[in-house]
């Protein structure tokens, strides 16, 4: 979905996709209280739209039968719930100590250069969004990073061009 369309969604009202509603309802069965499905509901919406538009918050709240502030409180707490539009691919760069000690900063700067963006930004072609992430648990292969669901490491600056090419 285009960024424009998503921005429109964010302001012009929002309805949960029937499949997403069903998925959220299925999640409810795993827990004692509906609030517990909140994180998964946000992830379900995020899988469809790439991010969680503002108007999705009350929609999810209604679906779960909880208050909108409780959902927004959760949505803004967790770092992997995106409350702003992201590109088609999200790059998560591990910035924790083991990667730091194995030249993470060179990798980070190379990404900044290569993509022309800083952390928290999306490339103008809407292809990549760049974010730092907690230790990825790939410390023996630092510096490590993820592109969407794929984990890489160690990644040398020279590998970047070829690596990113795989994500159109």
């Amino acid at each position: 979905m285009s960024e424009q369309a998503d921005k429109t969604l964010a302001t012009d009202g929002f309805e949960l996709h029937p499949d997403d509603r069903a998925a959220i309802q299925a999640e409810l069965g795993h827990f004692e209280q509906p609030q517990a499905a909140c994180i998964e509901a946000l992830k379900i919406v995020q899988r469809r739209h790439g991010w969680v538009p503002d108007a999705a918050i009350p929609a999810i709240a209604r679906e779960l039968g909880v208050g909108p502030a409780a959902v927004e409180g959760v949505a803004t707490f967790y770092s992997l719930i995106f409350r702003q539009p992201v590109g088609r691919h999200v790059i998560l760069v591990c910035d924790s100590s083991s990667c730091y000690l194995t030249d993470y900063e060179m990798l980070r700067d190379a990404l900044f250069d290569h993509l022309g963006i800083q952390y928290g930004q999306t490339t103008p072609d809407n292809r990549f969004t760049l974010l730092p992430v907690c230790c990825l648990g790939a410390c023996d292969s630092g510096p490590a990073m993820m592109i969407d669901d794929d984990t890489y490491g160690p990644v040398a600056p020279k590998d970047l061009a070829e690596l990113l090419e795989g994500y159109s």
Partner: peptide, 11 residues
């Protein structure tokens, strides 16, 4: 498209 590098650096 780029199996070489991708496979080499896949964690």
């Amino acid at each position: 498209g780029t199996p070489g590098t991708v496979n080499r650096v896949r964690y």
